[in-house]
Design a protein around this nucleic acid. Structure first.
Length: 271
DNA sequence: AATTGTACCTGTCAGC
DNA sequence: TGCTGACAGGTACAAT
């Protein structure tokens, strides 16, 4: 489900809703999504805590509690958070938090690839340390991007998926970014001219900002915790559009595979 | 050290 | 209808 714009939408939704209710109870139905914690551990440390701040780093959701501890979630392919009222439920529910006011925050995950970490007060959030720069942050400058690209011996598309290179881009937006930039996904990073790097840099920011404004891309069962679906699906130009006519040059959109993952692009206008 | 392939888990869909 | 294989928004780790 989630790349940077989807995770950002989820975080904004959670932040606007959680007017810090207290966690009363934690119920775990499937413990193998827990990495450095357990049901007992969560039940010991979370009840009584208030979700003071919720933010995003790359594709990770970070919840900061009133005691200084943190719960970190990575949704991987199919994880989602959902507010549930009373006895309401959702398919593939893996755990939930019982909140003040007869509300629940459920975590559901069809494929169960998502992961959750609990960091106690004072513990460093070690799972976040290897992440590359935030592509929408002020310190992600063109100069910094140029320097990190020019020595990479990898085709540009799989490089955009590398979270140590830049955090938050996934398979949908990698294709859309390179389409907007007019760059072939198999173009080697080290061979890009500075003009081409600039086009990719601009496209990263422009596509991610547009997608956030649309609250992400609604594919499969993605929705934010209130059930709002992302509208960027209507603006996709190439992703899952193999065989369609390219809106820019009239060519035919292709699907190819790079490192076991689908890439969508137009050979007519991406070089 | 960096890049690429494999494993993880479970569901859906197309083709036979 | 049932089976099989391909594919799915991701990453950790092993192999190269």
């Amino acid at each position: 489900m989630p790349e940077l714009p989807e995770v950002e939408s989820i975080v904004r939704c959670l932040s606007s809703n959680i007017k810090p209710p207290q966690i009363l109870k934690v119920i775990v139905l499937r413990a193998d999504i827990l990495v450095n914690t357990s049901q007992e551990h969560l039940c010991k440390h979370l009840p009584g805590q208030v979700m003071q701040k919720i933010y995003r780093r790359g594709k990770y959701i970070v919840m900061k509690f009133s005691n200084g501890g943190h719960l970190v979630t990575h949704l991987r392919m199919s994880g989602l958070y959902r507010f549930l009222n009373g006895n309401e439920t959702v398919p593939y529910l893996r755990l939930w938090f019982e909140l003040e006011g007869d509300k629940k925050l459920g975590y559901a995950d069809k494929r169960a690839l998502g992961r959750i970490w609990l960091y106690l007060p004072g513990e460093p959030l070690s799972v976040l340390t290897k992440l590359g720069p935030e592509p929408l942050a002020a310190d992600f400058t063109l100069e910094r991007f140029q320097q990190s690209v020019h020595w990479r011996h990898s085709p540009i598309k799989p490089l955009l998926l590398n979270q140590t290179f830049v955090a938050g881009i996934g398979n949908i937006y990698a294709s859309e970014i390179l389409y907007q930039a007019g760059i072939s996904p198999s173009h080697y990073a080290s061979d890009l001219t500075s003009e081409e790097v600039y086009k990719i840099y601009r496209a990263i920011r422009s596509i991610l900002e547009q997608a956030i404004a649309c609250r992400g891309t609604h594919i499969s069962d993605f929705a934010d915790p209130e059930g709002n679906e992302g509208e960027f699906v209507n603006r996709l130009k190439v992703y899952q559009k193999a065989g369609d006519i390219c809106p820019r040059c009239g060519g035919i959109i292709q699907r190819t595979v790079q490192q076991q993952r689908s890439t969508y692009w137009c050979p007519g206008c991406q070089h």
